[in-house]
Design a protein around this nucleic acid. Structure first.
Lengths: 164, 164
DNA sequence: ACCTGAACACCGTTCAAGT
DNA sequence: ACCTGAACACCGTTCAAGT
């Protein structure tokens, strides 16, 4: 079912993902979907959390590098699925188990780096990654230029939030 | 007409702003709106640009302080209208004359500060302001805490992009 | 557990016509 | 220039019923 939803989005963009369009693709009556999903929000949550499951989680290395790698990997995952980024914006982030796991990894990394206000730092970094991916997704810019500017500003933020 | 649109949004949130709901409030047939507006996107663009017209533009002072004041003023304007922030996200930024004017002021400020890559710096700062406002709008956090964390991270970014 | 038919209360937009 | 009636092709969701 998530695969079918992804296919609908891939073909027609996020706007094309309606309950009825998904039902059409599955060759099923529209209300049959409600046996698998509470409502449309639930469907979108599952779809987004599924994508977050593919974010690579760095292991080992220095804490600062790990945080940088985690945010870059998140950004790249989002940029690789431009049609879904708008949905992340609409529901600022995500709420499923994969999102929770990524949040915990990020928090642990920030604590290891020694930032004084971990929740604030997390918020800044998530806004930064999703925001950049969103501008990439909707834009006419050469893709490489934005990726470079993402990395640079990520480092500004990490520099600023690191004590000493 | 924009006033009526604002009233609909104020009462029922951004989701409540449909062409038909707006027509209902104006006591007019739904299609009558198309004499004043090309389509719904056009309506939203007018609504958002109207809001941007209320952003205070700093005059005088040192360039760095002016950029900081401009972004803070933008952030505060957005936070003051949480129901509209989601619309900014959906169409990353805005396109009307007020948006263009703010962009020019920002570019001039960044050039005065001496940042090497003005378009990249502008992108970073706009993402930061809209992103923070969006998280504020949808969240349970104490409002003051987020405003403080906005200012702090804004300074990190400005520090990073300033040469020397 | 999973599906269907039928219905309800909505959408955005267009077309032809009226003043 | 601004409005209307009528229509088209859609939405999300619920309810009762069937297997």
């Amino acid at each position: 079912m998530l695969a079918a939803a992804r296919a609908v989005v891939a073909e027609g963009g996020a706007d094309a993902l309606s309950m009825r369009a998904l039902a059409r693709r599955l060759e099923v009556a529209p209300n049959a979907l409600y046996s698998h999903v509470a409502d449309k929000t639930d469907l979108l949550d599952q779809l987004l959390d599924d994508l977050l499951g593919t974010v690579a989680i760095p292991t080992g290395g220095d804490p600062r590098g790990a945080v940088e790698a985690l945010m870059t990997s998140t950004y790249e995952t989002l940029v690789g699925h431009p049609e879904l980024v708008g949905l992340f914006l609409a529901r600022q982030g995500a709420r499923g188990p994969n999102a929770v796991r990524l949040g915990e990894v990020l928090d642990a990394g920030l604590a290891a780096v020694g930032v004084p206000d971990v929740p604030a730092a997390r918020r800044v970094l998530i806004i930064h990654a999703i925001g950049f991916a969103a501008f990439d997704a909707g834009d006419v810019l050469p893709a490489g230029a934005t990726a470079h500017s993402f990395t640079r500003s990520l480092r500004w933020l990490l520099d600023g939030m690191t004590p000493g």
